[in-house]
C-alpha cells in the first residue's frame, strides 16, 4: 500500500504547475494528471533529499517574476538529489541543465559551476533542505556575483 502512495506522490510532483500571476504559498498549484506510466506503481520513494521536495512554498519564490528562475525551480523540484550531486562535483548534466534554464552563456559557465560548488554548504545547509530553500539560496548567491547577477534579475 505504501508503494502505491509513493507512486502517486511521484506523479504529483512531476506534474506540478505554476499559477500566474501570484505570490507566495497560493502561487503554486498541483495539477493532476491522468496518464499514469506502467511502472510508477512499482516505484519506491526517492531516497536522499527526496521526501522534502514538495515544500516549494518559501517566502520569495512565489514572488519570483523571473521566468528562468521559475523553470529552474521546477526542475530542481523533481531532480533535487541529482542537482545536489552534480553541484558537489562542480560538473554534470544536471548542473548544465540549470545553466541552460537560467540562460547562462558559455563564457560564464565555468564561473557558474565554481560558485555553486564552492557554496554547496550554503545552498544545502542541512540534509532536509527543500528545493525551494535551495533555489532561494542560489538566487541570493548569484545576485551577489558581478558577472552572474544578470541571469537572476527580476
Amino acid at each position: 500500500m505504501k508503494k502505491l502512495i509513493a507512486g502517486a506522490i511521484l506523479l504529483g510532483a512531476s506534474s506540478m504547475a505554476f499559477a500566474q500571476p501570484g505570490c507566495g504559498v497560493g502561487a503554486m498549484i498541483w495539477k493532476g494528471q491522468s496518464g499514469i506510466a506502467p511502472h510508477v506503481l512499482a516505484a519506491t520513494t526517492n531516497g536522499t533529499f527526496g521526501n522534502q521536495t514538495f515544500g516549494m512554498t518559501t517566502g520569495t519564490l512565489g514572488c519570483q517574476t523571473n521566468e528562468s528562475v521559475q523553470s529552474m525551480a521546477m526542475y530542481m523540484d523533481s531532480n533535487i538529489d541529482k542537482v545536489a550531486r552534480d553541484m558537489s562535483r562542480g560538473n554534470g548534466e544536471n548542473l548544465e541543465t540549470l545553466a541552460v534554464l537560467l540562460g547562462v552563456d558559455e563564457a560564464d559557465r565555468t564561473n557558474f559551476r565554481q560558485v555553486l560548488q564552492n557554496n554547496f554548504a550554503v545552498i544545502f545547509p542541512k540534509s532536509d533542505t527543500t528545493s525551494g530553500e535551495a533555489v532561494d539560496a542560489i538566487v541570493a548567491l548569484l545576485e551577489k556575483n558581478e558577472s552572474l547577477s544578470k541571469y537572476v534579475a527580476a
Binding site: 531516497g47 536522499t48 533529499f49 554547496f120
Partner: peptide
C-alpha cells in the same frame, strides 16, 4: 541514516575543486 550520510558525503566532495567525476 541515508539522508545525513549523503549530505556529509556531498559536503566533503564539494570542498575538492577541479577533479572531474
Amino acid at each position: 541514516i541515508a539522508a545525513p550520510l549523503s549530505h556529509s558525503l556531498l559536503r566533503e566532495r564539494s570542498k575538492i575543486d577541479g577533479i572531474a567525476p
